[in-house]
Design a protein around this nucleic acid. Structure first.
Length: 215
DNA sequence: ACCCAGGGTCATA
DNA sequence: TATGACCATGGG
């Protein structure tokens, strides 16, 4: 089974996902940090708090008392850590001209820049690259490794960059790649939430429900 | 009560 | 390079 075939099966089962949930590129960046090891429902509450207080912009986030910021982030968990991480990201973001300035950077430079921010790791950086800057970067998360290793397509212990490379090679970096990567990662998360837990109830728990191509 | 979440950093060996 | 501790709220 190829990466293409899995994509087709997921797309047939779940349909278009319309990701990322968020109205602006900056909101996507904030969400990418807040969703680290955290359910999206909790992230939405935190983002709503920021919106309700007129704080969903980098200037305000840097201006307000860090404790105040942490208070708004509380529902998303790790609120002290995430308040600091958001501040780090905003400082870097504004220092390089915000979305307008950073849009002129090539993808490699932009990725390294994001990774230089304390609190932004590979997945968070790639979320931002793909969903805030529309770059053709495949996002790998825990579900991705779990699903594709259980399918027998990759080794369970494959590292992040190798797995990202596997997808980007399999799917090709021709035009339309950004659209496909966008949809694919969203489908993987959706399917993962559905049936691919760390401790499967049965040997084939990733491959069954609601995914005709996997049965 | 238990497991889990759209991770990442830091200290230690 | 590779583990382990730590961060913390809320859903199922």
């Amino acid at each position: 089974m190829s990466a293409h075939a899995v994509y087709d099966a997921l797309h047939a089962a779940y349909g278009p996902q319309h990701w990322w949930p968020g109205d602006t590129p900056f909101e996507v960046m904030v969400g990418a940090v807040l969703t680290q090891n955290t359910g999206w429902v909790n992230v939405e509450r935190a983002i709503d708090n920021l919106k309700a207080n007129g704080a969903l912009d980098p200037y305000t986030i840097l201006d307000v008392d860090p404790q105040q910021l942490a208070g708004w982030l509380k529902p998303s968990g790790y609120f002290n850590v995430k308040a600091q991480r958001l501040r780090n990201l905003c400082r870097w973001y504004l220092a390089h001209g915000g979305h307008e300035g950073l849009s002129e950077w090539d993808t490699t430079r932009l990725r390294e820049g994001l990774l230089s921010v304390n609190g932004v790791g590979k997945e968070t950086a790639d979320d931002i690259l793909l969903y805030a800057f529309a770059r053709p970067v495949f996002v790998v998360d825990a579900y991705t490794r779990r699903i594709f290793s259980r399918l027998g397509l990759v080794a369970p212990e494959i590292d992040y960059e190798s797995l990202r490379g596997w997808f980007e090679t399999e799917l090709g970096t021709v035009d339309g790649a950004t659209r496909v990567f966008n949809e694919y990662h969203a489908l993987i998360v959706n399917h993962g939430k559905d049936v691919c837990r760390p401790k499967p109830r049965c040997a084939e728990c990733c491959l069954k429900r609601r995914c005709a191509g996997f049965t």
